[in-house]
């Protein structure tokens, strides 16, 4: 018996792919298959260029510096829109979550506005703010606002009454109660809101740039379409995926560091 157990373990270990690599397996297989199909001439290159062609396009754009200009401006729009949206959502969400009066006055209006598809604001924003940066950043900020606002508000409302009572027993002031109970207790919901918001930020930057931009990754999409270069379109999509994933992973890493104390299924060894 005592011999059988270690032997079984080592057999399992030899077969196992390390956990972080498991997620890479399927995408790599797909890309390889795609490349093979392209080389064999089974897909038309004017509709779906091979992965190597897409990579080449990206490298060419990188060499000319064009790539960094487009990526830079798109990142700038997302970061600025995300920042503004988060800031406003945090103030209003904290207010409506914590104060019943604020909730009664503000929340119905905000919930009503939330039901307007955000893209519907575009003509109005362009009319008010022009076709340059302001209207794009505003659109992104609006997209980011709602998930952050909603998660923060419901997070605060969902704080365990029993923990709040412990704070009261120790005669914490309102401000101390916020800082020492509400803030840490709300953090998980808030961080989920930020991640959702960031995802929407990336969605809305595409929408904003599709509607009229002279640079940015969204502009590359349109440019690729009008000039008949599918490699540029796919390159742009790949870059969106890459940037979106990268920023999300960053936020996710920050979340995990801040929420080390959580006793959840996902946090297990």
């Amino acid at each position: 018996m005592s011999l059988a157990i270690p032997r079984r373990r080592s057999a399992k270990q030899r077969l196992a792919i390390p956990r972080p690599l498991q997620g890479w397996l399927l995408p790599i297989a797909l890309v390889v298959a795609w490349e093979l199909l392209s080389r064999l001439g089974l897909v038309a290159p004017n509709l779906l260029p091979a992965p190597t062609t897409v990579l080449q396009t990206i490298l060419t754009m990188a060499r000319s510096g064009e790539l960094f200009r487009h990526v830079g401006i798109t990142l700038y729009r997302v970061v600025l829109g995300f920042g503004i949206g988060t800031l406003v959502a945090t103030v209003l969400g904290a207010l409506t979550g914590y104060s019943r009066t604020a909730h009664a006055y503000l929340d119905p209006l905000l919930q009503a506005l939330r039901n307007i598809p955000s893209i519907a604001w575009v003509p109005l924003f362009i009319l008010w703010l022009g076709i340059y940066e302001s209207s794009k950043v505003t659109l992104i900020a609006v997209g980011v606002f709602f998930p952050v606002y909603l998660n923060l508000m419901s997070g605060i409302q969902g704080v365990d009454r029993k923990l709040v009572e412990v704070g009261k027993i120790y005669r914490l002031s309102q401000l101390q109660l916020v800082r020492r109970v509400f803030l840490p207790a709300t953090l998980p919901a808030y961080l989920v809101g930020l991640r959702n918001g960031l995802g929407l930020g990336w969605m809305f930057v595409v929408a904003a740039e599709l509607m009229g931009a002279s640079q940015g990754l969204g502009y590359l999409l349109i440019d690729g379409q009008t000039t008949g270069r599918p490699a540029v379109i796919i390159a742009s999509i790949v870059l969106f995926a890459l940037l979106g994933k990268l920023t999300d992973s960053g936020l996710s890493a920050i979340s995990q560091r801040l929420l080390y104390w959580q006793d959840s299924y996902g946090a297990r060894g």
């Binding site: 923990l163 027993i169 120790y170 005669r171 840490p184 207790a185 104390w261």
Partner: peptide, 20 residues
């Protein structure tokens, strides 16, 4: 009229702050 500093309270559940 409010929680008294000389009185301690122990609840049915431990009610610990999970982040501390």
């Amino acid at each position: 009229t409010a929680p008294h500093p000389k009185v301690g309270l122990i609840f049915q559940e431990a009610r610990l702050m999970p982040w501390l």
